[in-house]
Design a protein around this nucleic acid. Structure first.
Lengths: 200, 200
DNA sequence: GACGTTGATTGCACAAACTGAAATCAATGA
DNA sequence: TCATTGATTTCAGTTTGTGCAATCAACGTC
């Protein structure tokens, strides 16, 4: 019946941390403070999160599962990079599109602190690896898989950057298409001869 | 004449840290230990480096200056991405090519520790921004500049990854050309129609 | 040659991030 | 009834990182 503790300790810690980081910044917030607001102890915080940064990155693994799911579900006839961007579009529709405000505030928190930016970059790298693994599962060689996954994530970052800007109001799905188009244009802009190694 | 202290404290700290990280790993090495081996104190370590990770990233800023220098020096007629890869080739020739062994050991140390990987990613992001700034200086709009710089860094990472593998013996310059070619192939592999947004 | 300034280094005291180990105690189920 | 489970707590400890004042050889100036 009556549980021994208030439910959802993890959620309370995440919410408390989000509020405090937004109010007074990441550095000026201590783990003790977060835990106190959530009605828990510092030690409990570290039972749930490996470190102070990690509390902001709960959605990451969900997004990763979603993308990989979409990617393996997607028809194998599509060129790899298109398949990746398709999966990103589907996952973004499912998880980002309706939460623009929250996602944006979260990015502002991260943008305001170098440590958090580092962690964000690491999460993106892990996601890149997961996508590359899925592509290898489709038969791509490891090199191409990783390069394709990286290019896909580059498209994702470009699109999300615009999506979180005040002036922008178009759906993330469209911005992903645009970013892919931009990357293609930049990559195709010249022939290889300019950078060929001299007399190999 | 006789200096008050042994010369090059920074260099001694870097060397001591490099050795200890290689011997026993990053986590199992304390700052006190590094400082002791360098004949200095912990406090002095933190006078020179903002944190424990930073001691491994001294060359980063040099490489950044070198690339930007090459980039602004390079003829403005070249397509942006080609100019970036050209600059990377020049900088790599000047700073990496003859130190393969050291660079490789350094990457092994970084690969063995998540915290160091995060810092490495941050340095790459900073380098990306510096390249983008140089491209804006050439008249590119900010969006394209950042995307081009990111694509260039993707080429760089792909090339360096191969360069540090045991089987590989070709010069980094060539691997950069190859990686650029791979990226172009992947990007060009299909038309945009597949990912166009449905009935906007 | 006296003398003030500079600057790399140090000692000390301290906040905050993390960790390992043992203890608590409602809930659960056999 | 009773052993087990598991989220939470307490506590003691290590390590990272910082602020501040002090040291003292070297250096330039008068």
């Amino acid at each position: 019946m009556m549980p021994r503790w208030e439910p959802d300790g993890v959620g309370r810690l995440q919410a408390a941390a989000f509020e405090l980081f937004a109010e007074q910044g990441f550095e000026r917030t201590t783990v003790a403070e977060i835990s106190r607001r959530a009605g828990l102890t510092q030690r409990t915080f570290f039972n749930h999160f490996a470190d102070k940064r990690e509390v902001l990155f709960g959605l990451g693994s969900e997004f990763q599962r979603e993308i990989v799911r979409e990617l393996v579900a997607c028809a194998g006839t599509l060129p790899p990079l298109d398949a990746v961007v398709r999966a990103l579009q589907a996952a973004s529709d499912a998880m980002f599109e309706e939460r623009r405000a929250v996602v944006k505030r979260r990015y502002e928190i991260i943008a305001a602190n170098p440590e958090l930016q580092e962690r964000e970059l690491r999460k993106q790298a892990e996601l890149t690896d997961a996508i590359a693994a899925a592509l290898r599962g489709r038969g791509l060689d490891p090199e191409t898989a990783l390069l394709t996954a990286s290019a896909g994530m580059l498209v994702q970052q470009t699109a999300v950057r615009r999506w979180t800007q005040p002036a922008e109001s178009r759906p993330l799905r469209e911005l992903l298409s645009d970013a892919l188009h931009s990357l293609r244009t930049i990559a195709a802009h010249a022939t290889d001869q300019w950078v060929a190694s001299p007399e190999t």
